[in-house]
Amino acid sequence: MPSPSDPVVAALRAAGCVFAEDEAELIRSTARTPDEVTAMVDRRVSGHPLEHVLGWAGFHGLRVAVEAGVFVPRRRTEFLVDQAVALARNASVVVDLCCGSGAVGAALAASLGGPELHAADIDPAAVRCARRNVAPFGGRVHQGDLYAALPDTLRGRVDVLAANVPYVPTGDVGLLPSEARDHEPLTALDGGADGLDILRRVADEAPRWLAPGGSLLVETSEPQAPRAVEVFARSGLIAALAVSDELYANVVIGTMP
């Protein structure tokens, strides 16, 4: 572990990085040359997310590639993966909708023993990044707006539909930390006036894609969770809410009857 007097640690700490020693160690272990260390520190000090600086993020036991401009997978979203795995250990078809880097899809594929995996996102940069992360599991990534991106052959066949939709209310986007606000795509953050616009669209069409007994899982915030459960129920799904106090995670689960 670098000492607090280390110049890299000092630069990171001066920039406000709370875990400066840990970040310095990660940067040094990732960089191939001293010049790369300097360049990475400069990017981090200027406000870029650490994961963009490193080019990867740890997620559910995997090292996931995360390119600049792509949504960074959050640790709390590991709870969504855990819920999906507990529900559908024998899942044969998995879809990661609004996939970003493809971290959720890759983690599900790794945990479920190689299901047929599809991922989709509207952002070309996310699609390129996701292809890197799901390729080891034989996954396919499609570009487009929600279900419009998916092959019609998946209708009625999906056992696990994970959708880490954007859920920040439009009026709150400006309150996000600058790392997210300035360096992640708005399409991955802005969920409309009440933060539930995309969630509604996903839930409304989910019954056409889920297999009998299949489940839709969506992350949301604590204040939004009761309304999100209602949206799922109105869509004809058996709705439930799973909560992790440790990770501050709220996952709405809708299961096909």
Rank of each mutant, 00 (worst) to 15 (best):
S244N: 02
T30P: 06
A130P: 02
L150K: 05
G213K: 12
T30D: 06
Q143E: 15
L150V: 08
E23F: 01
L62I: 09
V158T: 03
L161M: 12
R234L: 11
R32W: 15
R43C: 10
L186T: 15
P7A: 01
G156T: 00
E36H: 11
V252C: 12
T220M: 04
L199M: 10
T187G: 15
A109Y: 05
A225V: 02
E246Q: 13
S221D: 08
L175M: 15
S101N: 10
D159V: 04
G214R: 08
V127E: 00
G171N: 13
V218A: 10
T38S: 12
D123G: 01
C17D: 14
I238W: 12
R76Y: 00
P136F: 10
V218W: 00
T153K: 13
A126Y: 00
R128K: 12
R157W: 01
R63I: 09
V165K: 03
V158S: 04
F79S: 03
G102M: 12
E67D: 15
L186Y: 14
P212L: 09
R200I: 05
L80N: 01
P226Y: 10
W209F: 03
A228P: 03
I253E: 07
A57H: 03
A84H: 07
E219C: 03
G144T: 01
D82N: 11
E23R: 02
R74T: 11
A20S: 13
P212A: 09
V53T: 04
A249V: 14
Q224E: 12
G144P: 04
R128Y: 10
T170L: 09
A206C: 01
L12M: 03
L87Q: 15
S235F: 00
D194A: 12
R181P: 11
M1Y: 07
L62W: 05
E67T: 15
A148T: 14
V134Q: 02
G213H: 09
D22H: 14
